[in-house]
Design a protein around this nucleic acid. Structure first.
Lengths: 140, 140
DNA sequence: GTCACTATATGCTCCCGACATATAGATGTC
DNA sequence: GACATCTATATGTCGGGAGCATATAGTGAC
């Protein structure tokens, strides 16, 4: 955070590179699971897919991505196999396991909850904002 | 994360104490700003307020809370003054600054975006889930 | 030969978040 | 008056998510 970053955020309206932007912790996980639920894939392809999703661009970082895939595999949420036949370097093809599909369901339920909570926050914020614009000179 | 935690998540449906639950990074910040936008307050009162908000219970941690308030003050998002007259120990009363109100607006805009993205994720997930239940034995 | 593209992987650092602990004033009670 | 409890603020520690840089290597184009 640090003072500079917060100040920049308020002044420059998110044009700064700071983390004040509202992001869900570990969201790369459900994103990968959803992509893999649609189609078996490999890291590089998943990365490009993430880059193409509005709001998920930040998740398309090779460091995070490959580490996350390894962790998911260690947890038996996905499983992988080398594909050497194709053109270019060998690829590690990932596939969802049964645990993985269940894990995605769990994530979806949690995301639903979070979405509701964000909605409640915004509703409360808007009621404040209305009040503020109704009497704009509340405080000097 | 770790393998155990992921596995527990899938099996026990979030009854475990792990972090797989979907949470917005730094969300204590806008929560505090919104509370302070409604009413000047001190740390302990803010903590109890957070504890009473469904979905914000985890944010009611004194460690996070007091540190965050200090950081916000360092960033001139809030300002504080000691209140010694009351019953009980002295309280540090916090108040939003102009920067703070702007910062809350910025957060609200970001939260709106995030809420939209979560909605898009869920829509995509549900289309997958439908497909899955339509042909349940896709994979052995 | 070297440049760009595809593909996987590791290292480093910051800081959020969880948890534990310290300090101390006020109040109640036995 | 000793002790527990509630109110109130504050610091210490540690794991891990996330951003950024870097390493390695196969392939095709020129």
């Amino acid at each position: 955070m640090t003072r500079d970053k917060i100040a920049m955020c308020a002044e420059r309206k998110q044009e700064c590179g700071c983390r004040c932007g509202c992001e869900v912790r570990g969201f790369i996980q459900p994103r990968l699971l959803l992509l893999l639920a649609k189609k078996d894939s490999h890291g590089y392809e998943l990365m490009e897919a993430l880059r193409a999703i509005p709001g998920a661009e930040n998740l398309a970082d090779p460091g995070m991505l490959y580490r996350t895939l390894r962790q998911l595999e260690e947890a038996e949420v996905v499983q992988s196999a080398w594909e050497t036949g194709g053109h270019g370097p060998a690829r590690r093809i990932y596939e969802l396991t049964k645990i993985g599909r269940e894990h995605l369901d769990t994530w979806a339920a949690e995301i639903e909850k979070t979405r509701t909570h964000l909605g409640e926050f915004l509703a409360e914020y808007e009621s404040i904002a209305e009040r503020r614009s109704a009497k704009p000179r509340k405080r000097g």
